[in-house]
Structure formats: structure tokens, C-alpha cells
Nucleic acid binder design. Structure first.
Lengths: 336, 336
DNA sequence: CCTCACAATTGAAGCGTTTCATTCGGAAAA
DNA sequence: TTTTCCGAATGAAACGCTTCAATTGTGAGG
């Protein structure tokens, strides 16, 4: 920077001012300095900058799993509001690995980002440690902190489960199955709870829980085999705890006599993963609005960055919505 | 850090040494210092650190489109080798926006990352500016630099197109269509070229190019309508320039009389996007090995970081592979 | 008992910014 | 002419670390 100063014939502080407080510098000087900057190809050293100011205009987001489009949506939303506030977002992927998650968090902490967004694994990590970060503001996404330690944004899983079941019931289905597990995943348990609530509110409708060992396609196929073995007509509606489960089950069941989707068996998934609308039978699903969750989370983080540690740590709950598609509506469904 | 030093009863430099050159510090002192660090919850300030050293142990990757799983794979691979070298990877998403891409690059440059990986948009950006970065090492992924300005990793698109067509020909298909466009996307043009080469090598096989205006599902559906209009039997094999195109076309065509996939029409996509194996008719595809490309790119970057600017700027070409699935093999295909 | 060599430790200089008390210079007021 | 004022420009101090020349302490060798 002193090169620039010399080249423009001004003092060090003046160069700094033309970059950070342009109104404190006269028109003529500003131009000289900018010319010098351009000519020398000067690039400000962010390390020195944030060392001097003690702040940073970068926020970091730690994502549990980049290959899940839900998390990508969150990152997108966060990126949008961060940019609106003149801040930049950098992403770190934990790849469903607790150790990597910790590393990523300390990495951000060491690099003194202005704040951290954390979309964690559904495990004991957050629960366990009351304080993750000493002084860097932290907002949780898709995971509620205990007792207001951190601000956060969560989806109303129970409402989502309710909506899914209610949708099928509204279509006249009465023999429902809920596909999902393991139940120690709180999200799955809550979705099941919601589905049960919907069934309880509608006499004559039954719900059976078919527990799976995970939420991926193979688990869905496995469950599909079970349902197949139970015989045609056992169920006429299927609430899956993830789109992957739904797709797996559909792959096994659809086409088998008595298991046409959706004529014999209407299916609703969960998550609105990108491929849910792209599969050959587009899957009805519950959308978690990842982008909005990201946006809100980033906004909460901004508040905390500007407001200091006294800011109240609120948890925003976002209601998911049903997106009906062919797997439940059949030919009545029209693509937008 | 001086707090730590005082607390441990040692000098500033000693604290620094126990963190960076533990072998220069006696066992006893090291333990004292580490105790102090733990007790005070000290976190080293990376800004000061990299200001003092002039280096950084972080590399950045700028991705054209996070919602494309190919780019996510690249990030994964890069992350893996970066970690092996004790460096950390942070991701920035350009979201198919040239302005954001430039911002992200300068952001990394200002923060003095050790190096940058760039998986750019297929546009004039890289072509246009001979020098993107003044002094930060830069390696391109999925895009070749002109005349050795930058090291890079690219996929052999032509080979991929060849393999796709050859696969169909090997299955006895003779009336092929190539779905894809616009042709100003160099990747699409090269894939078409490869497919043509395969056809040329097999007398009696024909190939028609059906140009699309993009590579997404709706474009695939649109093309599917065209093919439908051409009548059953016009084509018996379809090479799509992307999995999305393939899926879109399949959604329109499969089930229509004379258009059963793969009996009447065998389909091969391109990219091995995650959903390609997850759709109801798993799509045969050409895999670009994104993870490997990311790994190799990161390795090239490491070489350049350690070797200085004199390192030769090689471009590594990675051959894509065919992954046959049901959309071409039919019932002969067995899931792994 | 004195030297020497060597490992452990020290502390000041320096990295490239921002910040802020000071200084400068010229126009308006007296 | 002298004084006052005020925007513009200055430059030294500080940010928290690494580095390295210098210092201290210790045991071996003479």
C-alpha cells in the first residue's frame, strides 16, 4: 500500500481513506490514488485489514452434507441475504462427519469470520456442548438449540407430517403407512407424530409405521418389498419420511399388479429434493423451504453481529408446505 | 497470545513455538503452555498469523453451480486431497453468474488464500482475460486454458460422446439421435463430435442431431415431443448431452406405444448426476468422475503452491466412463 | 575449575492495514 | 493585514502473530 501512496504522491492514510472513506478525500486525490492502484495492480491484504480492524466481512456456513440439495438451498438463501448486507459467504462441507464439522467450525473461528451459520448433523454434537464458540456469533439452521443458547431456524416437522397425511386423507385414502426411521432421528419422530395427529383427527383412517434403518433409496426399496409382501390393498396411501425413501419404494412397487402409483397407492415424500420433481413419476413432497431458512438464518446472524451478544436468541419456526405431484394426484396433476 | 505467555510464565516466542515447532520446546514447557491455552480458551488469530507468515493454509474453490452435483463432486475430491496436505478448502458458489464469479475470485485473492481452484462457466470469462490472478496460483477445472497459462483438469468430452454412441451401437441400435445444445457450449459440441465419430466407424448406423436450447429437463421434454411427433421407429437409440435432457425425454416418451424405454428406444445420458441412478428408470450415463477431477486439480494446485510460478502448467485430461443402467440395458441390468 | 557446545528460551522487529490526533493550507471574517 | 475555521492530508501507533539474532543455562571435555 505504501507503494501506491508513493506512486500517487500521497500519504499512507490517504490511500486507506480513498478505499474506506471516499468522502473524506478530495475528488482530485481520489482519482490519483485510484489510478495508482489500477496501475500497480494493488490488491488489499485482507489479513492485515481484519487484523487492524478486528472484524471481517465474511461469514461462514458449515453444512452437514453438500450432496443433499436441502443444504445447498440453505446455502443459497444465506448467500443471498449475506450479499444484501455487503458480506460474503464461504461454505465448508462436513460430509456427514462429526470430526470434519468440528474442524470446519474452528477453521472459521480462527479465520475470525464475522459469524457462523451451522447446519449440523442430527446428533449429539450441538446438544452436548453448551458453548460451541467463545465469541463468534453462531446461528443454527435446521436444529434447535437447547434453552436459547443460540438463535436458530427450524422447520416445523410435525406440521409437515400432518400435512402429508392430511393430503392423502383428503384424497380419500384410509389405510396409510408411514415409512421412516430410525426414530432416534428427531426429525423423523416428529414427522411421524404429525402424521399420527392427522389420522387421529379423521375417524376411520388407520396408520401403520413401517420402520426403516435409514432414509436412502435402498431403505425405500427394502420397505417396498415388505409392502409388496403384505399384499395388494393392504395400504392405499404412503407417507415417506424422505423423498429418497419414496422413490425407492415406488421403484419396487409401481407396475406390480395392485400397486399402481398413485391409483392403488398414493405416495408423498419429504424434503423436496431436486430430483423429486425430476423422477419419472414426479413425487409429491413436503418442501422445507431451504432457501428461506437460509435467508432467515443469515438475517438472524446479521442481527447478532450488529447487535452484539445481548441480542435475544430467538428460534424461528418455518412451516413446510405440501407440493402435490403425480405420485399422489395422478393424471389430475399438471406440471407448471 | 501474550496472555497465554504470561499465564504460563514463558515468553511470547515460546508460545508460538509450541504451536508451530513443538520440537523446539522442552516437554515441560510445552505442557505448561498447552495448559494455559486450554484454560484461557485461546484461539489463534489466523489473520495475524498469515500476515506475519505471508502464507495461508487455506485454498478456495469457485464453483459455477452448486446445484449441479458434478460440481459438488469436484469440491469433494478437492477437499479430500487438500486435507491430505493439511490444507483446508472453502467453497464459493457463483450460481451461474459471471459477476458473482469475479467477486468470489477477488474475495479469495484479497484473503490471500494459498491457491484457487476455478470451475468456471463455459463462457468467455477465462478465455478473455489472459491473467486472472496476479500472484495467487490458479488451477482450472473442467475448462482448458489457452496456451498453458494455467494448469487444469478437463474431461475428454469427445471420448464420452464416442462411448455413449458406441454403447448403443453395440446393443444393435442403428438409428441414433443426439440430443443437445446450444452448440456454442463447447462441451456439447465435443460430445456430438465424439458420437459422430462412433457412427462414422460403423457403416449402416445413422445419427441425427436434434438441437435443444439448453440442457435441462424442460428442454428434454420439448425434444421428447419432437421425437414423438416423428413417429415410432424413427429412432431406436438416443444420446443425450445431459442426464436432465435424458430424463425429460424419457418422461415424455416412455409408456407411449412404440416408445418403450429401452425396448424401442435405448437412452444414454451424460454427467452421472446423482439423480440419474435414482429416477424410476435409472439412466445409463457417462460419468465425468468429478471427484477424481477435483482430486487431480487440487494436486496440481499443491504442486504449484510448493513449486512456485516456474512449475509447468500441465493440463490433465480425464477420460469419462460409461455407466450402463436400465435405460439402455433394460432387464439385463442388475443393480449393484 | 574453566571452556565449549548446544539446547532452550527470550524479546524485539516486522508483516500491511486502519485509526486518530496532528498538521497544513487556503478562504472567510475581523 | 491578522485571525479563525474547516476540510484535506499526514504519519505514528496499534492489531496479534512469526521469526531470528541474542541470551541463558547445562553438562561434557579438558
Amino acid at each position: 500500500m505504501s507503494d501506491v501512496a508513493r506512486h500517487a504522491g500521497v500519504a499512507l492514510g490517504t490511500v486507506s481513506n480513498t478505499m474506506n472513506n471516499p468522502d473524506k478525500v478530495s475528488e482530485a486525490t481520489r482519482r490519483k490514488v485510484q489510478a495508482a492502484i489500477a496501475e500497480l495492480g494493488f490488491i488489499r491484504n485482507d489479513a492485515a485489514r481484519s487484523l487492524a480492524t478486528g472484524t471481517s466481512s465474511t461469514i461462514g456456513i458449515v453444512l452437514a452434507d453438500l450432496s443433499n440439495s436441502f443444504f445447498v438451498d440453505i446455502a443459497r438463501g444465506a448467500d443471498a441475504t449475506a450479499r444484501q448486507h455487503g458480506m460474503n459467504l464461504i461454505i465448508a462441507n462436513s460430509d456427514v462427519d462429526l470430526a470434519k464439522q468440528s474442524m470446519n467450525i474452528s477453521l472459521f473461528e480462527e479465520s475470525r469470520v464475522a459469524g457462523v451459520l451451522l447446519a449440523p448433523l442430527d446428533t449429539a454434537y450441538v446438544r452436548g456442548s453448551a458453548t460451541l464458540l467463545r465469541s463468534t456469533p453462531l446461528v443454527l439452521v435446521n436444529f434447535a438449540a437447547e434453552s436459547g443458547h443460540y438463535a436458530g431456524v427450524v422447520a416445523d416437522e410435525e406440521h409437515g407430517g400432518y400435512e402429508a397425511a392430511q393430503h392423502l386423507i383428503g384424497l380419500g385414502r384410509t389405510r396409510l403407512a408411514f415409512l421412516g426411521g430410525p426414530l432416534l432421528l428427531t426429525a423423523v419422530a416428529q414427522r411421524l407424530e404429525g402424521a399420527r395427529a392427522a389420522v387421529a383427527a379423521n375417524p376411520g383412517v388407520t396408520l401403520e409405521h413401517i420402520e426403516t434403518r435409514g432414509l436412502n433409496i435402498p431403505h425405500g426399496r427394502h420397505a417396498g418389498q415388505d409392502i409388496l409382501a403384505r399384499g395388494a390393498g393392504t395400504f392405499d396411501g404412503l407417507v415417506a419420511a424422505s423423498d429418497l425413501l419414496a422413490v425407492g419404494a415406488i421403484q419396487i412397487l409401481d407396475g406390480k399388479p395392485g400397486f399402481d402409483v398413485p391409483t392403488d397407492l398414493a405416495v408423498v415424500g419429504y424434503d423436496n429434493n431436486h430430483f423429486a420433481s425430476e423422477s419419472a413419476i414426479p413425487v409429491s413432497t413436503i418442501s422445507q423451504h431451504g432457501e428461506e431458512m437460509g435467508r432467515v438464518a443469515a438475517q438472524l446472524l446479521m442481527n447478532e453481529i450488529q447487535g452484539g451478544p445481548t441480542t435475544i436468541k430467538q428460534t424461528v419456526v418455518i412451516k413446510p408446505d405440501l407440493i402435490p405431484r403425480r405420485s399422489s394426484l395422478g393424471d389430475a396433476w399438471r406440471r407448471d
